[in-house]
Design a protein around this nucleic acid. Structure first.
Length: 254
DNA sequence: TAATGAAAGACCGTTACCTCA
DNA sequence: TTTGAGGTAACGGTCTTTCAT
């Protein structure tokens, strides 16, 4: 099982990179998700599940597309598939077949080789597994979805850890800054020499800013300030030039 | 050559069924 | 025996790409 997950993760990375065959979804496929989300009916009806979606409206007619696909596939009905519809079989309820261990194992093997199948491979694999091509297709779709979900969980964990690390680092820097300020505004030392006395030595402007507004770009080593500091008109600062430091790559996008 | 519509295939969210604790 | 949760096969909707017209 762990082996399966490892394989899944590795493939998930390649999927995230755009793995797949010729027809690859573009980033805008996210729009499809958003659209289907907005298509969901807003009333929750108090049910435990999500709100009724458009797809749920056609539950009664489930199987129409499948039957069409079956026809296109040459109406092959495998023994296992037939086992799923051996009784009553009025077509109104969808029977759920359980893949055998052997079938699952072979599908997993193929998935490890390639997370997508071309039509020829699909038909051949279906024949080998005594399944309908549509079933093989659905299995691969679901498998890709599971892989992606796992990868998302891994990414989420990673980001959480990064967040914790950065929070801790931020606290540390805040403490350090406070200590430095305490040193700076500590009671003056014994009178300095006259040469130094006539130099007021104003603190750099960024030292007077609230700590939370200070940012230092590690790449160009310039000190930037948050939006609150730009309104006094005394400084001619480039407008909203953000020196964003990416903590994950340790690089700055200057 | 550009516009257009159909087909195919991928992804996504969801549903429904099955298994098991 | 019942029940709730989790896993997963199957579905409908939507988008993008390809190809023929």
């Amino acid at each position: 099982m762990a082996q399966e997950e490892d394989a899944g993760l590795a493939l998930g990375l390649s999927l995230g990179n755009g793995g797949g065959t010729a027809r690859r979804p573009s980033p805008s496929s996210r729009a499809a998700v958003e659209q289907s989300l907005t298509l969901s009916m807003p009333d929750d009806g108090g049910g435990v599940g999500p709100a009724h979606s458009v797809s749920s409206l056609s539950v009664g007619g489930a199987g129409v597309k499948r039957e069409r696909a079956e026809e296109a596939d040459g109406e092959r009905v495998s023994s296992t598939a037939a086992a799923g519809r051996d009784d009553d079989d009025d077509g109104s309820t969808r029977k759920k077949l359980r893949l055998t261990k052997e079938q699952s194992a072979l599908l997993e093997d193929r998935f490890r080789e390639h997370s997508t199948l071309n039509p020829k491979q699909k038909v051949a694999l279906a024949k080998q597994l005594n399944l309908r091509p549509r079933q093989v297709e659905v299995w691969f779709q679901n498998r890709r979805a599971r892989t992606k979900l796992k990868q998302t969980e891994v990414d989420c964990e990673f980001l959480k850890r990064c967040c914790e690390t950065l929070t801790e680092e931020n606290r540390r820097l805040q403490r350090e800054l406070q200590e430095l300020r305490a040193l700076k505004f500590a009671p003056p030392p014994p009178p300095p020499s006259a040469a130094a006395a006539h130099q007021p030595a104003p603190a750099p402007f960024y030292m007077q800013l609230p700590a939370a507004t200070l940012t230092i770009c590690p790449s160009c080593e310039r000190v930037g300030a948050g939006p609150a500091s730009a309104g006094d008109g005394t400084k001619s600062r480039p407008p909203t030039t953000h020196h964003f430091f990416n903590p994950f790559t340790h690089s700055a996008a200057c």
